[in-house]
Design a protein around this nucleic acid. Sequence first.
DNA 1: TCCGGATAGTCCGAGATTGGGACTAGATTA
DNA 2: TAATCTAGTCCCAATCTCGGACTATCCGGA
Lengths: 149, 149
Amino acid sequence: MADDLNLGLLLFIPYRHMESAVLAALREHGHDLPLNQARVFQRIAPGGSRLADLAEAAQASKQTVGSIVDQLERSGYVRRVPDPDDARAKLVTVTAKGQEMVELSRPVVRAIEATWTAHLGPLRARQLRAALTALREITDPYAARSGRG
Amino acid sequence: MADDLNLGLLLFIPYRHMESAVLAALREHGHDLPLNQARVFQRIAPGGSRLADLAEAAQASKQTVGSIVDQLERSGYVRRVPDPDDARAKLVTVTAKGQEMVELSRPVVRAIEATWTAHLGPLRARQLRAALTALREITDPYAARSGRG
DNA sequence: TCCGGATAGTCCGAGATTGGGACTAGATTA
DNA sequence: TAATCTAGTCCCAATCTCGGACTATCCGGA
């Protein structure tokens, strides 16, 4: 495995790095979000997402995601609102406090991306983003539905 | 978030895709490896890894990784051998059965990488791997130590 | 050489997490 | 209208996770 890691792990390593850094920064600002909550939270679409969609995106059961959303709701980051299109469903939406957290994370993400860009050079950094975005088309089953709102 | 996902999530999506595919393929061959076990297993260096190193790589506590290694050991995928350099330590090494699983996963990884290459074109695919490998230098705290053996 | 402090791994136990099964309410199809 | 499907929730048992404490061993200094 040493030098020739598979692309999967190669993707995971910087992902985890970014994730840890963002979570650490949020923690310093008083938002102590566990990993599982963060992973669900970041998947919420701008106009809100259904539980079942979040479960699919996070590849976890509805019960699991339901309990994570409970916690996010108790902490005030999200809210469940009725889905106007379907009375059975609810949309998990980001509250003002949740939005504040999103805003807080933005500069951290930008700073790390800047580090990466410095290391790779602007061209390769752009190419990286472009390649990953293209890859998403064939690797994100959730992508098709994520434009709600 | 919609179109302009942060690089973190952009990295995670194809990673998860690869991981699921490999695990599903292994399952079809009788190797039913849970996610947490797979994530530890894939971090074992060719010559064996210490528990503490695996814990750092997986960003989990020693106890957690210890119990995961217990399971991998019970299933016959790894073995603990004394570390010749330090009588306190043990090296977690991959057994023949574990190696078989590694071999089994190789073609699956290659197949998915081929799909990605087809989607991106050979040049961009090469660039992607190169960029990720370069990124590892500044995002993998474990990289320095991972060349054991 | 001996000793104090650091490190590798393990055991224990409590709290959190996860998901199967079953349920209600609402949608959809015939 | 009835049969069927789907969204979300409740209950509960199994599993997972990790802080704290412990033993064995290593390392550096006197």
